[in-house]
Write a protein that binds this DNA or RNA. Structure first.
Lengths: 188, 188
DNA sequence: GTTGACCTTTACGTTAACGGCAAGGTTGTG
DNA sequence: CACAACCTTGCCGTTAACGTAAAGGTCAAC
């Protein structure tokens, strides 16, 4: 029992996983998992969204689980939240500061300073949340509007099915009232 | 009572609002209200997101309230939901079909056909909602994650304020469990 | 120790979503 | 009618976010 097996699946290039080591992965491997190209990842590093990755002896970029998490976070901000890379940079700058704060926290004993650090970090996180919530709220507004149209159509349809003529067709344009309060979650 | 007044405010260029007419506005006017440049609006028309606008005798683009609504919708999809103009094109194609369906609906008497049309329209709206909800759900996930961090920090802070040392610092990395279930909506 | 898949940097190309300018036409007002 | 402030259609420029190709180095496996 020395080599054999798993070479059939992994091809001619794979980092050696010894014992309980940090588990470092190469760029394309990580990219494939996250749905990012190697170029995109390098670009993010170039923009400073990631710290310069660790390197192998031959200068290959190597990523650990934390790096992958950060990349996943970036991809989330981009795809899910629709932030630009510049905006993401802001949000991550806050994150970087949080990391630095953790260090500062550990290297001081002064309770007042510690409190200040945590308070600062808390503020950053809260602003991050605020930023996300704002987007969500506006998105929610659009969903509600669409749901209003949906409910109107459903009503219309049930009237048709009842064999009667459609209602006066109120033409509920540019409405801002809270439609569909009781019907919430009726779909699917 | 013939002219006078309102020329002091409106400057040397404004469409004449007679009686109860449709109220048509020029491109920059509309753009200013929506936070869009004239160029952007023309570009949207060029991409087919808007139907070619009505024109004045001198070929000026003229927009009515519906056009403005549609533009507001587009801007919402872009800024709030973060969709690309191409994606917006898809969503609006569905909307265009809905409009055509309204016409088809009015020009037929066959109840079966009418039902089919409404059903089709309903399907489109539901897909639109689905699309928005998907984005919202992922965004909500990110918010929850951030709220988890926030709550952790708050706890930490209150411990500091109590004069004690911080808790073991659980290092809750890459967590996927539903943090902060009971603490929901504690902020603001 | 040679291969083949992967990596490196460098650099130019591409697409989306407009910005900006030129050259000229239109409109409401004085 | 003259004027300022808008508008029109080109058309080229720009920024973001990568794609892609070149020229070469690395790495695990055979």
């Amino acid at each position: 029992m020395s080599h054999s097996a798993r070479s059939a699946l992994t091809g001619p290039a794979a980092p050696v996983p010894t014992e309980a080591e940090p588990r470092l992965r190469r760029i394309q491997d990580v990219g494939a998992e996250l749905g990012l190209t190697a170029r995109a990842i390098r670009y993010y590093e170039e923009l400073g969204l990631l710290a310069p990755a660790a390197r192998s002896e031959g200068a290959y970029r190597l990523y650990d689980a934390d790096d992958v998490e950060r990349l996943r976070f970036i991809k989330g901000l981009r795809d899910d939240a629709g932030f630009s890379l510049t905006e993401i940079g802001q949000l991550l700058e806050d994150e970087a500061m949080r990391a630095r704060n953790r260090d500062r926290f550990r290297t001081t004993e002064d309770p007042a300073e510690r409190r200040a650090i945590v308070t600062d970090t808390l503020g950053r996180v809260e602003r991050q949340i605020e930023s996300l919530r704002e987007k969500m709220a506006r998105l929610a507004g659009m969903v509600e509007e669409a749901e209003g149209r949906r409910d109107h159509l459903r009503l219309h349809l049930s009237e048709l099915d009842a064999g009667r003529e459609p209602a006066p067709h109120v033409h509920t344009r540019s409405g801002s009232r809270p439609v569909a309060a009781t019907l919430d979650e009726t779909g699917q």
